[in-house]
Simulated assay, not measured.
Amino acid sequence: MGVREKRKIIILGCTGSIGTTALQALLPYVKDFEIVGLSAHSSYKDLIHIANQWNCNTICLSKEDPSLYEKEQLPPGLVFYTGKDGLLDMIRNTKADIVLNGIAGSSGLAPTFAAIESNKNVALANKESIVMAGNLLFSHARNLGVTIIPVDSEHSTIDALIQAHGIKNIQKLVITASGGPFRNFSADQMENITVAMAVSHPTWQMGAKISIDSATLANKGLEVIEASYLFGFDSKNIEVVIHPQSIVHSMIRLHNGAVYGQLSPPDMALPIMSAIADSHIHLKDIVKPLDFTSLTLQFMKPDFDRFPLLKIAFEAIEKKASYPIAFNAANEIAVQAFIDEMIDFNQIATVVKATFEHDWSMTYTSLDEIVLIDSSVRTLARHVIRGLVE
Protein backbone atom coordinates (compact mmCIF):
# COMPACT_ATOMS: atom_id res chain seq x y z
CA MET A 1 0.00 0.00 0.00
CA GLY A 2 1.49 3.36 -1.07
CA VAL A 3 2.19 6.27 1.25
CA ARG A 4 -0.50 8.94 1.01
CA GLU A 5 0.79 12.18 -0.45
CA LYS A 6 0.80 15.08 1.97
CA ARG A 7 -1.68 17.90 1.48
CA LYS A 8 0.28 20.94 0.31
CA ILE A 9 -0.54 24.33 1.86
CA ILE A 10 0.48 27.93 1.30
CA ILE A 11 -0.06 30.08 4.40
CA LEU A 12 -0.42 33.82 3.80
CA GLY A 13 0.07 35.98 6.87
CA CYS A 14 1.91 33.26 8.79
CA THR A 15 3.00 35.60 11.60
CA GLY A 16 -0.50 36.98 12.26
CA SER A 17 -3.20 35.54 14.51
CA ILE A 18 -4.67 33.20 11.87
CA GLY A 19 -1.26 32.06 10.65
CA THR A 20 0.20 31.37 14.09
CA THR A 21 -2.94 29.51 15.17
CA ALA A 22 -2.78 27.41 12.00
CA LEU A 23 0.89 26.55 12.54
CA GLN A 24 0.23 25.49 16.11
CA ALA A 25 -2.78 23.40 15.12
CA LEU A 26 -0.80 21.71 12.33
CA LEU A 27 1.94 20.40 14.64
CA PRO A 28 0.19 17.08 15.39
CA TYR A 29 -0.48 16.62 11.66
CA VAL A 30 3.01 16.97 10.17
CA LYS A 31 2.56 13.57 8.47
CA ASP A 32 -0.55 14.80 6.70
CA PHE A 33 0.35 18.33 5.62
CA GLU A 34 3.30 20.00 3.92
CA ILE A 35 3.75 23.77 4.02
CA VAL A 36 5.09 24.75 0.60
CA GLY A 37 4.79 28.53 0.82
CA LEU A 38 4.76 31.16 3.56
CA SER A 39 4.25 34.91 3.58
CA ALA A 40 4.56 37.67 6.17
CA HIS A 41 4.25 41.41 5.76
CA SER A 42 7.31 42.76 7.57
CA SER A 43 8.44 40.20 10.18
CA TYR A 44 11.45 38.87 8.26
CA LYS A 45 13.19 37.04 11.11
CA ASP A 46 9.96 35.36 12.23
CA LEU A 47 9.28 34.35 8.63
CA ILE A 48 12.73 32.77 8.29
CA HIS A 49 12.32 30.98 11.62
CA ILE A 50 8.96 29.50 10.60
CA ALA A 51 10.32 28.47 7.19
CA ASN A 52 13.23 26.64 8.85
CA GLN A 53 10.91 25.00 11.38
CA TRP A 54 8.64 23.65 8.64
CA ASN A 55 11.31 22.96 6.00
CA CYS A 56 9.59 25.38 3.65
CA ASN A 57 11.88 26.77 0.95
CA THR A 58 9.48 29.29 -0.63
CA ILE A 59 8.67 32.51 1.23
CA CYS A 60 7.56 36.08 0.61
CA LEU A 61 7.94 39.31 2.56
CA SER A 62 5.18 41.46 1.12
CA LYS A 63 6.21 44.87 2.47
CA GLU A 64 8.07 46.96 -0.09
CA ASP A 65 11.03 47.74 2.17
CA PRO A 66 14.44 46.17 1.38
CA SER A 67 15.89 47.45 4.66
CA LEU A 68 13.93 44.70 6.43
CA TYR A 69 16.08 41.98 4.91
CA GLU A 70 18.97 43.37 2.84
CA LYS A 71 21.49 43.08 5.70
CA GLU A 72 20.42 39.52 6.48
CA GLN A 73 21.94 36.41 4.93
CA LEU A 74 19.39 34.25 3.17
CA PRO A 75 19.51 30.54 3.98
CA PRO A 76 20.79 28.48 1.02
CA GLY A 77 18.18 27.02 -1.30
CA LEU A 78 15.49 29.49 -0.25
CA VAL A 79 13.21 30.96 -2.94
CA PHE A 80 12.59 34.49 -1.67
CA TYR A 81 9.88 36.75 -3.11
CA THR A 82 9.33 40.36 -2.04
CA GLY A 83 6.65 43.01 -2.39
CA LYS A 84 3.01 42.85 -3.38
CA ASP A 85 3.77 41.58 -6.88
CA GLY A 86 6.20 39.04 -5.46
CA LEU A 87 3.44 37.70 -3.22
CA LEU A 88 1.18 37.13 -6.22
CA ASP A 89 4.04 35.46 -8.09
CA MET A 90 4.73 33.14 -5.16
CA ILE A 91 1.09 32.07 -5.09
CA ARG A 92 0.98 31.47 -8.84
CA ASN A 93 4.35 29.70 -9.07
CA THR A 94 4.06 27.39 -6.05
CA LYS A 95 2.27 24.09 -6.47
CA ALA A 96 -0.27 23.65 -3.67
CA ASP A 97 -3.62 22.05 -2.90
CA ILE A 98 -4.95 24.96 -0.88
CA VAL A 99 -4.06 28.52 0.11
CA LEU A 100 -4.87 29.72 3.63
CA ASN A 101 -5.35 33.46 3.28
CA GLY A 102 -4.84 34.93 6.74
CA ILE A 103 -3.92 38.42 5.53
CA ALA A 104 -5.87 41.15 7.30
CA GLY A 105 -7.71 43.89 5.41
CA SER A 106 -8.08 44.79 1.75
CA SER A 107 -4.48 43.73 1.07
CA GLY A 108 -5.78 40.16 0.99
CA LEU A 109 -8.01 40.69 -2.06
CA ALA A 110 -5.43 40.39 -4.86
CA PRO A 111 -3.83 37.27 -3.30
CA THR A 112 -7.26 35.61 -3.18
CA PHE A 113 -7.72 36.27 -6.89
CA ALA A 114 -4.18 35.03 -7.59
CA ALA A 115 -4.94 31.76 -5.81
CA ILE A 116 -8.19 31.29 -7.73
CA GLU A 117 -6.59 32.12 -11.08
CA SER A 118 -3.84 29.56 -10.45
CA ASN A 119 -6.54 26.92 -9.73
CA LYS A 120 -5.87 26.58 -6.01
CA ASN A 121 -8.65 26.14 -3.49
CA VAL A 122 -8.82 28.90 -0.88
CA ALA A 123 -9.33 28.63 2.87
CA LEU A 124 -10.44 32.21 3.31
CA ALA A 125 -9.97 34.08 6.58
CA ASN A 126 -9.69 37.38 4.69
CA LYS A 127 -13.33 38.44 4.82
CA GLU A 128 -12.54 41.64 2.91
CA SER A 129 -12.03 39.56 -0.25
CA ILE A 130 -15.69 38.61 -0.18
CA VAL A 131 -16.96 41.98 1.04
CA MET A 132 -15.14 43.85 -1.73
CA ALA A 133 -15.51 41.43 -4.64
CA GLY A 134 -18.90 39.94 -3.81
CA ASN A 135 -20.44 37.69 -6.43
CA LEU A 136 -17.59 38.39 -8.86
CA LEU A 137 -15.27 36.40 -6.61
CA PHE A 138 -17.57 33.38 -6.50
CA SER A 139 -18.40 33.39 -10.20
CA HIS A 140 -14.68 33.58 -10.95
CA ALA A 141 -14.00 30.63 -8.64
CA ARG A 142 -16.91 28.66 -10.06
CA ASN A 143 -15.73 29.18 -13.64
CA LEU A 144 -12.28 27.84 -12.74
CA GLY A 145 -13.54 24.96 -10.60
CA VAL A 146 -12.05 26.41 -7.41
CA THR A 147 -13.60 26.03 -3.96
CA ILE A 148 -13.68 28.88 -1.44
CA ILE A 149 -13.93 27.58 2.13
CA PRO A 150 -14.78 30.06 4.91
CA VAL A 151 -12.45 30.19 7.91
CA ASP A 152 -14.28 32.64 10.18
CA SER A 153 -15.73 30.60 13.03
CA GLU A 154 -19.21 31.96 12.31
CA HIS A 155 -19.17 31.12 8.61
CA SER A 156 -17.45 27.80 9.13
CA THR A 157 -20.28 26.89 11.48
CA ILE A 158 -23.01 28.06 9.11
CA ASP A 159 -21.38 26.18 6.23
CA ALA A 160 -21.38 22.96 8.26
CA LEU A 161 -24.99 23.47 9.37
CA ILE A 162 -26.13 24.11 5.79
CA GLN A 163 -24.43 20.89 4.69
CA ALA A 164 -26.15 19.02 7.52
CA HIS A 165 -29.67 20.42 7.11
CA GLY A 166 -29.92 21.64 3.50
CA ILE A 167 -30.09 25.28 2.47
CA LYS A 168 -33.73 25.01 1.33
CA ASN A 169 -34.78 24.18 4.88
CA ILE A 170 -33.19 27.30 6.38
CA GLN A 171 -35.20 30.46 7.02
CA LYS A 172 -32.53 32.61 8.70
CA LEU A 173 -28.85 32.72 9.54
CA VAL A 174 -28.06 33.78 13.11
CA ILE A 175 -24.56 35.21 13.50
CA THR A 176 -23.24 35.45 17.03
CA ALA A 177 -21.02 38.29 18.28
CA SER A 178 -19.13 38.60 21.55
CA GLY A 179 -20.14 42.27 21.67
CA GLY A 180 -16.57 43.39 22.24
CA PRO A 181 -15.16 45.05 25.36
CA PHE A 182 -17.69 47.91 25.38
CA ARG A 183 -20.99 46.08 25.07
CA ASN A 184 -22.05 47.28 28.54
CA PHE A 185 -20.68 50.82 28.25
CA SER A 186 -23.03 53.78 28.55
CA ALA A 187 -23.10 56.50 25.90
CA ASP A 188 -20.98 58.70 28.19
CA GLN A 189 -18.38 55.97 28.68
CA MET A 190 -18.16 55.50 24.92
CA GLU A 191 -16.86 59.06 24.66
CA ASN A 192 -13.65 58.22 26.53
CA ILE A 193 -12.45 55.02 24.85
CA THR A 194 -8.72 54.94 24.15
CA VAL A 195 -6.79 52.92 21.58
CA ALA A 196 -5.33 50.75 24.37
CA MET A 197 -8.85 49.95 25.60
CA ALA A 198 -10.12 49.17 22.09
CA VAL A 199 -7.36 46.68 21.22
CA SER A 200 -8.01 44.58 24.34
CA HIS A 201 -10.60 42.01 23.25
CA PRO A 202 -12.29 40.06 26.09
CA THR A 203 -12.42 36.70 24.28
CA TRP A 204 -10.15 36.47 21.23
CA GLN A 205 -6.46 37.31 20.75
CA MET A 206 -6.26 39.36 17.55
CA GLY A 207 -4.36 42.18 15.89
CA ALA A 208 -5.13 45.85 16.54
CA LYS A 209 -7.32 46.42 13.45
CA ILE A 210 -9.55 43.39 14.01
CA SER A 211 -9.77 44.07 17.75
CA ILE A 212 -10.95 47.62 17.10
CA ASP A 213 -13.42 46.34 14.49
CA SER A 214 -14.77 43.94 17.10
CA ALA A 215 -15.10 46.81 19.56
CA THR A 216 -17.15 48.88 17.08
CA LEU A 217 -18.99 45.79 15.75
CA ALA A 218 -17.69 46.69 12.28
CA ASN A 219 -16.15 43.22 12.17
CA LYS A 220 -19.56 41.70 12.71
CA GLY A 221 -20.90 43.97 9.99
CA LEU A 222 -18.26 42.64 7.61
CA GLU A 223 -19.26 39.10 8.59
CA VAL A 224 -22.91 39.86 7.85
CA ILE A 225 -21.97 41.07 4.36
CA GLU A 226 -19.71 38.05 3.93
CA ALA A 227 -22.50 35.67 4.95
CA SER A 228 -24.89 37.25 2.47
CA TYR A 229 -22.49 36.63 -0.44
CA LEU A 230 -21.28 33.24 0.81
CA PHE A 231 -24.67 31.68 1.36
CA GLY A 232 -27.06 33.78 -0.76
CA PHE A 233 -29.21 35.21 2.06
CA ASP A 234 -30.48 38.79 1.99
CA SER A 235 -30.49 41.19 4.95
CA LYS A 236 -33.94 40.27 6.24
CA ASN A 237 -32.84 36.65 6.58
CA ILE A 238 -29.69 37.38 8.58
CA GLU A 239 -29.69 38.38 12.23
CA VAL A 240 -26.99 39.17 14.75
CA VAL A 241 -27.17 38.21 18.41
CA ILE A 242 -24.73 39.24 21.14
CA HIS A 243 -23.29 36.19 22.88
CA PRO A 244 -20.45 37.23 25.24
CA GLN A 245 -19.10 33.74 25.94
CA SER A 246 -18.31 33.01 22.25
CA ILE A 247 -19.25 29.36 22.74
CA VAL A 248 -22.07 29.19 20.18
CA HIS A 249 -20.47 29.94 16.82
CA SER A 250 -23.63 31.00 14.99
CA MET A 251 -26.90 29.20 14.33
CA ILE A 252 -29.55 28.54 11.71
CA ARG A 253 -33.33 28.89 12.00
CA LEU A 254 -35.25 26.31 10.00
CA HIS A 255 -38.63 26.96 8.41
CA ASN A 256 -40.14 24.47 10.89
CA GLY A 257 -39.05 26.68 13.81
CA ALA A 258 -36.10 24.60 15.01
CA VAL A 259 -32.76 26.30 15.74
CA TYR A 260 -29.42 24.52 15.35
CA GLY A 261 -25.99 25.75 16.34
CA GLN A 262 -22.44 24.57 16.90
CA LEU A 263 -20.81 24.81 20.32
CA SER A 264 -17.10 24.68 21.06
CA PRO A 265 -14.50 26.68 23.00
CA PRO A 266 -13.47 30.02 21.43
CA ASP A 267 -10.51 28.63 19.51
CA MET A 268 -9.85 29.42 15.84
CA ALA A 269 -7.94 26.16 15.41
CA LEU A 270 -11.16 24.27 14.65
CA PRO A 271 -12.43 26.36 11.70
CA ILE A 272 -8.89 26.75 10.33
CA MET A 273 -8.13 23.03 10.40
CA SER A 274 -11.58 22.15 9.06
CA ALA A 275 -10.98 24.45 6.09
CA ILE A 276 -7.45 23.35 5.17
CA ALA A 277 -8.26 19.66 5.69
CA ASP A 278 -11.43 20.04 3.59
CA SER A 279 -12.50 16.47 4.43
CA HIS A 280 -9.25 15.06 2.99
CA ILE A 281 -7.66 14.54 6.41
CA HIS A 282 -9.38 12.98 9.42
CA LEU A 283 -9.21 15.48 12.29
CA LYS A 284 -9.29 14.53 15.95
CA ASP A 285 -9.22 16.49 19.24
CA ILE A 286 -8.65 19.90 17.63
CA VAL A 287 -10.35 21.62 20.58
CA LYS A 288 -11.13 20.42 24.08
CA PRO A 289 -14.67 19.14 24.75
CA LEU A 290 -16.94 21.59 26.51
CA ASP A 291 -17.56 21.12 30.22
CA PHE A 292 -21.28 21.74 30.67
CA THR A 293 -21.19 21.48 34.46
CA SER A 294 -20.24 25.15 34.84
CA LEU A 295 -21.32 26.62 31.53
CA THR A 296 -23.56 29.69 31.33
CA LEU A 297 -24.66 31.08 27.99
CA GLN A 298 -26.12 34.57 27.46
CA PHE A 299 -27.80 36.08 24.41
CA MET A 300 -29.01 39.63 23.80
CA LYS A 301 -29.90 42.04 21.03
CA PRO A 302 -27.20 44.30 19.60
CA ASP A 303 -27.55 48.03 20.29
CA PHE A 304 -27.61 49.67 16.87
CA ASP A 305 -27.53 53.16 18.41
CA ARG A 306 -24.27 52.68 20.32
CA PHE A 307 -22.81 50.53 17.53
CA PRO A 308 -24.09 52.15 14.31
CA LEU A 309 -21.55 50.43 12.04
CA LEU A 310 -23.52 47.20 12.29
CA LYS A 311 -26.62 49.01 11.01
CA ILE A 312 -24.64 50.51 8.12
CA ALA A 313 -23.41 47.03 7.17
CA PHE A 314 -27.00 45.81 6.86
CA GLU A 315 -27.69 48.80 4.60
CA ALA A 316 -24.70 47.78 2.49
CA ILE A 317 -26.26 44.33 1.95
CA GLU A 318 -29.56 45.88 0.90
CA LYS A 319 -27.94 48.24 -1.59
CA LYS A 320 -25.18 45.89 -2.80
CA ALA A 321 -23.36 47.38 -5.87
CA SER A 322 -20.24 49.08 -4.46
CA TYR A 323 -21.67 49.92 -1.03
CA PRO A 324 -19.93 46.98 0.68
CA ILE A 325 -16.63 48.25 -0.77
CA ALA A 326 -17.42 51.71 0.61
CA PHE A 327 -18.20 50.30 4.06
CA ASN A 328 -14.95 48.34 4.24
CA ALA A 329 -12.61 50.99 2.81
CA ALA A 330 -14.02 53.86 4.86
CA ASN A 331 -13.77 51.76 7.98
CA GLU A 332 -10.13 50.84 7.31
CA ILE A 333 -9.21 54.53 6.88
CA ALA A 334 -11.19 55.56 9.98
CA VAL A 335 -9.68 52.83 12.17
CA GLN A 336 -6.16 53.85 11.17
CA ALA A 337 -7.00 57.47 11.98
CA PHE A 338 -8.20 56.33 15.41
CA ILE A 339 -5.00 54.32 15.95
CA ASP A 340 -3.03 57.44 14.96
CA GLU A 341 -5.12 59.41 17.50
CA MET A 342 -6.45 61.77 14.85
CA ILE A 343 -10.08 60.98 15.71
CA ASP A 344 -11.83 59.50 18.73
CA PHE A 345 -13.55 56.10 18.96
CA ASN A 346 -17.07 57.31 18.16
CA GLN A 347 -15.81 59.24 15.15
CA ILE A 348 -14.90 55.97 13.42
CA ALA A 349 -18.62 55.52 12.76
CA THR A 350 -18.97 59.22 11.86
CA VAL A 351 -16.36 58.85 9.11
CA VAL A 352 -17.87 55.63 7.75
CA LYS A 353 -21.40 57.03 7.75
CA ALA A 354 -20.43 60.27 5.99
CA THR A 355 -18.46 58.36 3.35
CA PHE A 356 -21.12 55.67 2.90
CA GLU A 357 -23.85 58.26 2.27
CA HIS A 358 -22.31 59.20 -1.09
CA ASP A 359 -23.40 57.45 -4.28
CA TRP A 360 -21.70 54.05 -4.53
CA SER A 361 -24.27 52.51 -6.87
CA MET A 362 -21.68 51.78 -9.57
CA THR A 363 -21.06 48.11 -10.33
CA TYR A 364 -17.81 46.38 -11.24
CA THR A 365 -16.71 43.55 -13.49
CA SER A 366 -13.03 43.17 -12.66
CA LEU A 367 -10.45 43.38 -9.90
CA ASP A 368 -9.05 46.58 -11.44
CA GLU A 369 -12.45 48.27 -11.20
CA ILE A 370 -12.80 47.19 -7.57
CA VAL A 371 -9.39 48.71 -6.80
CA LEU A 372 -10.40 52.02 -8.41
CA ILE A 373 -13.65 52.21 -6.44
CA ASP A 374 -11.82 51.30 -3.24
CA SER A 375 -9.31 54.11 -3.91
CA SER A 376 -12.11 56.63 -4.45
CA VAL A 377 -13.73 55.66 -1.16
CA ARG A 378 -10.44 56.05 0.71
CA THR A 379 -9.84 59.50 -0.78
CA LEU A 380 -13.29 60.63 0.33
CA ALA A 381 -12.89 59.13 3.81
CA ARG A 382 -9.58 60.98 4.29
CA HIS A 383 -11.35 64.18 3.24
CA VAL A 384 -14.04 63.55 5.87
CA ILE A 385 -11.35 63.02 8.52
CA ARG A 386 -9.62 66.28 7.59
CA GLY A 387 -12.92 68.05 8.11
CA LEU A 388 -13.20 66.57 11.59
CA VAL A 389 -9.70 67.45 12.74
CA GLU A 390 -9.30 70.93 11.22
Results as ranks from 00 to 15, higher is better:
V3P: 11
E5H: 15
I10A: 00
I10V: 11
G13S: 09
E34N: 10
S39G: 07
A51G: 09
W54T: 02
S67L: 12
E70T: 13
F80L: 03
R92V: 13
T94K: 05
G102C: 09
S107K: 15
G108R: 04
A110R: 14
T112L: 06
I116P: 02
V122Q: 08
A123R: 05
L124Y: 00
N135A: 13
A141T: 05
R142N: 12
H155L: 02
S156D: 05
T157Q: 02
I167A: 12
I170Y: 02
L173H: 04
V174F: 05
G179S: 06
A187N: 12
A187I: 11
T216F: 08
A218E: 07
A227P: 06
K236P: 00
V240I: 00
P244D: 00
I247G: 02
R253T: 12
G261F: 05
P266F: 07
L270Q: 10
L270T: 04
L270R: 12
P271Q: 01
M273G: 04
A277T: 01
I286P: 05
L295G: 05
T296D: 09
D303A: 07
F304H: 11
R306N: 13
F307Q: 02
L309D: 02
F314H: 02
P324K: 06
Q336W: 09
D344Y: 13
T350N: 11
K353W: 01
F356Q: 00
T365Y: 08
L367I: 14
L367D: 01
D368Q: 14
D374K: 07
R378T: 08
L380C: 01
R382F: 00
